[in-house]
Design a protein around this nucleic acid. Structure first.
Lengths: 191, 191
DNA sequence: AATCTGACTAAAATCGTTTTATGGTCAAAT
DNA sequence: ATTTGACCATAAAACGATTTTAGTCAGATT
């Protein structure tokens, strides 16, 4: 405890407020008071509220990425890998409250400042799918005509489902069908 | 013209306003003035604004259903039928402004009064998919393990895509991938 | 009898104004 | 190098007065 990492403490507190109340209903004063500091210190470590929110989101998605990498490492054949990837991705994002905030934002066409972090995650996502499907092709278990558009298709479907799943409280209603989605996609890709 | 069908005239005018300005920003006075009648006459033919909106939506979806029935009648094998159904459905709903209103509503959890009409359409939708896929099974071109859950899966995906397609102006961005969706689904069902 | 009118009401939305809250700054303190 | 707390400008909330609007109804019209 010789050097308390204030930046990390701020992010942790900010995370609690942002994930509970969202961007607009969280005030910088609240966050500062919660860690028994003056508001100014937030502005010593971050240039703006938006930057702080960005950092919280970034760390949340970083956690998701770490878990997804584990999924990829722990599955050996591409079929299981794809199946686990799709399901775990839904499960992890289901529990990512700050990410849900940005989904709402997307809907209302606000939160422009968050584009970069979301773009980064989209890129990661795409890379993983490329990797998994390419692996399947090499293994001979998958067979597709156009890798690029297949990846786009899967991404589109997964992204489209996020609003009903996470924002419209249809997770319990849809999740069983969602599991089938994974096996259905795989069936469509199988050789 | 001996008996001008006032009810139909009201619905036509209401349709113009609702589809352009939505439910809340359309006033009963506007509609009445547009057809050169007093507002009271609207309440002679309909019990409330909600009921009038319902009627407009009902007729819009009735039109969609009619077109979709044509698609089913005009395709002979189940594979083409399914392909055309999915694509035409997206295309028709893309142009159904009043329906878009209810999608927004769904998101904001308002417009409870519209549940019945939407439920009717969902039922129709499900019946058609059942019909098409059953036909494909009989023909021997499709082969699936669980009809019920397959239908649910396709419905879930199509419904999920409506928000990005119709409300987030991603129609042009997604529609090409959307076309592939149809052929992808078919591939997944083929025997 | 069926259809329509227009004045009416109660409730809600809108608008202009004042007050308060909030993001952000900074000189001084630690 | 980090933190404080007073301070500013602006945006959001609160307020109250005014207008709009969904819905009603007694009476007119056909």
């Amino acid at each position: 405890m010789s050097k308390p990492d204030v930046k990390a403490i701020i992010v942790r507190a900010a995370n609690q407020y942002f994930s509970k109340f969202g961007f607009y209903k969280t005030t910088m004063d609240e966050i500062a008071k919660h860690i028994h500091k003056a508001k100014g210190v937030l502005y010593y470590h971050f240039n703006s509220k938006e930057e702080l929110f960005n950092e919280v989101l970034k760390q949340e998605l970083e956690g998701v990425k770490t878990e997804l990498r584990k999924v990829i490492n722990d599955s050996d054949d591409a079929l299981n890998m794809l199946n686990n990837y799709i399901f775990t991705r839904f499960d992890l994002l289901h529990n990512s409250d700050t990410y849900h905030e940005t989904l709402k934002a997307d809907f209302f066409e606000k939160y422009h400042f968050v584009e970069k972090v979301r773009g980064d995650f989209a890129k990661f996502d795409k890379e993983q799918l490329y990797f998994i499907i390419s692996k399947g092709i090499k293994e001979g278990t998958l067979e597709i005509s156009d890798l690029e558009s297949t990846v786009d298709l899967i991404l589109m479907v997964m992204n489209s489902m996020e609003i009903p799943l996470f924002l419209q409280n249809k997770y319990s209603e849809y999740i069983d069908t969602g599991k089938e989605l994974a096996s259905f996609i795989i069936r469509g890709l199988k050789s």
